[in-house]
Design a protein around this nucleic acid. Sequence first.
DNA 1: TTGAAAGCGCTAACAC
DNA 2: GTGTTAGCGCTTTCAA
Lengths: 337, 337
Amino acid sequence: MPQDRQVTIITVANRAGVSKTTASDALRGSGRVSEETRRLVTDVAAELGYVPNGSARHLRRARTGTIGLHLPEVLPRSDYYMSFVFGAVQAAADHGYDVTLLTSGSGAGATAERRPRVDGLVLGDPLAADPVVEKLMSSQLPTVTCERYPGPGDPDGIVWSDHGAALRELLDHLAAVGTLRPALIVPGDESDWAASVHRTYRQWCTERGVVPLTRAVPFDANADATSTVARNLLTDEPGLDALIAAPTSAAATLLPVIREAGRRVGDDLLLASCVDGPAMRFADPAITAIDVQPREAGAACAELLFELLAGAVAPGVERLHPIELNIRESTRRRNAP
Amino acid sequence: MPQDRQVTIITVANRAGVSKTTASDALRGSGRVSEETRRLVTDVAAELGYVPNGSARHLRRARTGTIGLHLPEVLPRSDYYMSFVFGAVQAAADHGYDVTLLTSGSGAGATAERRPRVDGLVLGDPLAADPVVEKLMSSQLPTVTCERYPGPGDPDGIVWSDHGAALRELLDHLAAVGTLRPALIVPGDESDWAASVHRTYRQWCTERGVVPLTRAVPFDANADATSTVARNLLTDEPGLDALIAAPTSAAATLLPVIREAGRRVGDDLLLASCVDGPAMRFADPAITAIDVQPREAGAACAELLFELLAGAVAPGVERLHPIELNIRESTRRRNAP
DNA sequence: TTGAAAGCGCTAACAC
DNA sequence: GTGTTAGCGCTTTCAA
C-alpha cells in the first residue's frame, strides 16, 4: 500500500532503525554493512515500496544516467531506424541507462538553448547538413556516431560497417552472372553511408572499365520520387541490365515501374538494394540486398558509448560492425533482354 | 571557452555580483528582478556558457521534465510508429520536456525494478498481453494511451480514433461498387484497434446479411505470415470479391500473392487496408487505405499528457483523433471474376 | 561495522 | 528589488 508521503531513504532508515548512510550502503550492496542489516534494510525497503530518486542520485554523482539518441527523421527507411532505436534502448537498459530521443525539429523548446540532459550521445547516420547534429557534435559530450560524420569535427567513437566491401561483393556477383551495365540509384553524399556506396561504385566501374551510371535522389526520397528517377533511367538507358537501388524502400517499390517498362526482374534486369528489410525478403521476386543488422548496430553504438563513459576505451575508437550480402531471386541469373 | 570547473549558478552570481536567488530569478525571468540586473546576469551567464543542471532543478521541483513513451516492438508497421514517436517528441520539445523510450525488452536493467524517472507516460497501442504495459499502467504515474487499453485499469487520458466508423465507410464503399463477399484479415483482439476493426466488420456483416469471413494474424505478423494466410483464404474461398488487410504492410505485400492466385486487384478483386502508409500510396495499383495520421496522434497524446500534468484537464478525458479514408485504384470499380 | 555531517545545484519561503 | 536560509534525496567523506 502506497504511503501518502513519498518514501525516501530516510523513511527506510527510520523504519529499519539504522542511519541514512547504512540504509544507502545496504541498498546498493557496497559490502560495508553486515549481511544481517543488509537483509533487514532491503526487506523494509521492499515492504515500503521504496524507489530511489534518480534526480537526487544523479545530482550527487554528477551524471544523469541517460544517453541521447539522434536520428534523421526519415520515414522511407523507418524499419531500419526502428530496429536501431530498439537495439540502442535495449543495450542502454542492460546498463541501467535511459535513452532520450533528440529530434531535428525546432519547436519552442529548441529556442531555449537547453543542453540535452544526458551523459553522452549516439548519433545514427549523422547528415552533413543537419544543424542539430552540428550543434550536438560541438556539445563537448562524449559522442558515438553510427557511420562517420561527414561534417566538421570527430566523434569519440564510431561504429561503422564496410558498405563499400559489401557493395563490391554485390557488383562482383552481378558481373559473375553476366551483367555488363549495372546502374546505381543512391542518395547524395550528405550521409557517409551513401557517400561510400557511391565512391565504391565509381571505383569498381573504373577498375572494370565499365561506364558508371548513377542517379542521385534526396536522402529522404519517398517511393514516388525514386520511382520517377528509375522510370527516366530505364527510358534513357535501354542497355541497362542491372539496377542497384541503395535505399531499402526504393528497390521494392520499383518493381511495378520495372514491369511497366517491359523488363523482367531476375531475368533481363537484375535488381538489388544496399539495405535489406522485410520488403526485400517478401517481394516477388525476392530482392538481393545487404543486411546491415540495424538492431545490433544500435546496440553496438550504445555499448561503445558506455565503454567510453567508463573510461574503458580511449576516445577515437572505431569499431567495425559486420554486415552481409543476401543473394536472392532478383539477381540469380541473367538472360539477354 | 569552457572552464575546467563546472559553471553553476553560483559562478554566475559571483561574477555578476548578485546573490544566487537573484541570478536564478533573472535567468528564469520570474519578473522579480529589475530589467537592468536581469540583462547583466543573462549576459554573464551567456559569456560563461552557463547551462542549468537538470538533476538539481528537478530534485528541487520534484519533477523530472521527462515523459516516458512505450511502443510495442512491431517492425511491420514501423513507419506508423516512427511517425508517432517523432510527433510525440516534437510536442514534448515544444513544452520543454524530454522523451525517454521504454521497451518491453527484459535485460539486466529490467531486473532492478527502477521505476522510470518520468513525470508521466504515453503508451502507444497498448497490448492486453504486454507485461511491461501492465506494470506501467499500475505505476500510479499520469498516463495517456493511444487507443484504449484492453487490459485491466484505465489511463488518465485516451486519444482514440474512430476506426469503426472509417471501416464502415470503407465497407459501404466496397458494397457500392458491387462487392458481395468482403473478407477481413486482422490481428487478434489484444489491441483495441484490431478489436474495434474486427467488431465493426462483424456488425456490418450482420446488418447487411453478409456472411463474415475473417482470418486472424499475430499483431506483429510479418509479410510472409500474412501472405500465407491470404493465399489459403483465396484458395478456400473462391467467391471472395474484396479483401481488407488491416495491417499496413500486409496489403502491399499481398499483391504478388493475389496475382499468383490469378486474381486482378482493382478488377475482379478489390483490396484495401486499415492503415495507410507510403507502401499503400505507391503500390501498383495504389491501395485504398485509412489514413490514421500517426504523427498528429503522437503529438496529441503528448499534448494531452501535459494538460493532465498541468491540471488543466481532469483525469478520465478522452479525445477523438480524426482519421480519413483514402479511396484509390485498388477499389475503384469491380468486375465479375 | 556503523553514524554524523557535508554538500551536489537549484528554487521557494521568508526576510529586509 | 534583492539577499539569506533552508532544504529536495542522495552519496561520500570523516569519525567513532
